[in-house]
Design a binder for these strands. Structure first.
Lengths: 195, 195
DNA sequence: GTCTATAGGACGATAGAC
DNA sequence: GTCTATCGTCCTATAGAC
């Protein structure tokens, strides 16, 4: 991918984080990227093309967060790695906030645009799988299906807490605490056995 | 409120469930309601006015679901009432699906439109409070703060599972099972005591 | 590859008759 | 209260020069 294309995709991520997928205007994207609207159509054919590539970029970047743990966390063991992989997405840094916002928008848009659903389901599945694997390393006694279910609950909870945070219904530190407690509960493994 | 206004608000709920808050077109709403666009502006001033009243309607209707339990569930005790209050929102009936979709859109829109945030936070708080109260009746041994935290986790999880379902990343029966297990886990109360 | 300029259409909102 | 008709704006997409 050429540098220009990459620049435009990154600019699109910023605009989506600011205005939403459905608030993205090609003109505003052009200004953000410092190019003309015509150049954007030259590279991406149409608005749907911009969205498709940008959402793929967001999915990959979100994946990288969990797939490539911080070496410090890795050194502190799988438990720390797990907590970090989840809590990392509840942080008030510009990049994380941008990614969470864009990911939430991707999710919300897919409800009405079926063309996004396959990519989204795939990205979700990959993410859940990575968390399930971490759970397996923290808690080798548990079964694989139990870890899969825990991972699904934790990631869905994270998405729910994240959008509450971003929509102003839940302070960030409160969201982080709730998620931390949920991780503890999933690891406590005192729930009735597999149904 | 006049009959016509109510009709239009209900039509707007259907259009929002079909196209999203940001996909709502006044012309399409007019067709759906069987009136002219001019009449809509006569009743609601502008597009924002339509949205404001419709989102208030959605909030109230969602609230009614949990606030007015099915008499059968109430008779089977608070535990059944709690499970129903939560699982009720994961159902493939037209009305529930419509409400879940519209609620999710309201949530997602509030990330970018601060004018919606106050109403949304209030509605969320009311909902969490009702669930916390049910938890207190199921599990009188627990403390109020613990019930509040459980209610926040369960409702946030429900929102996360709901949008995964609606966006095609999670089958409905799977979502229902994950939520049921989470309810069991919150009631098992084996997590480390209040932090 | 990148620009300026603009065509063409969609949409929010209003005017004015009834 | 309700309609038909339309205005003005914003936005996607393209034409054509460099």
């Amino acid at each position: 991918m050429s540098d220009r294309r990459t620049e435009i995709v990154k600019a699109a991520t910023r605009v989506i984080a600011r205005r939403g997928v459905r608030g993205l205007r090609v003109g505003e994207l052009a200004t953000e990227a410092g190019v003309s609207t015509a150049l954007i159509y030259y590279h991406f054919t149409d608005r749907a093309g911009i969205l498709r590539e940008t959402l793929a970029f967001i999915g990959e970047r979100a994946d990288r967060y969990t797939a490539e743990p911080d070496p410090d966390d890795a050194a502190r063991g799988p438990r720390a790695e797990l907590e970090q992989a989840l809590l990392l997405e509840l942080q008030n840094s510009a990049e994380v906030r941008e990614n969470s916002t864009a990911w939430g928008e991707l999710r919300a848009s897919a409800v009405f645009e079926s063309s996004l659903r396959d990519d989204l389901a795939r990205a979700t599945h990959t993410w859940v799988h990575e968390i399930a694997e971490l759970l397996g390393r923290v808690h080798p006694a548990g079964t694989a299906p139990a870890h899969a279910a825990s991972a699904e609950r934790l990631t869905a909870l994270l998405e729910g807490l994240s959008i509450r945070w971003l929509s102003g219904s839940l302070p960030l530190d409160h969201a982080r605490r709730l998620l931390g407690e949920a991780v503890d509960a999933e690891l406590a493994d005192c729930r009735p056995a597999l149904r």
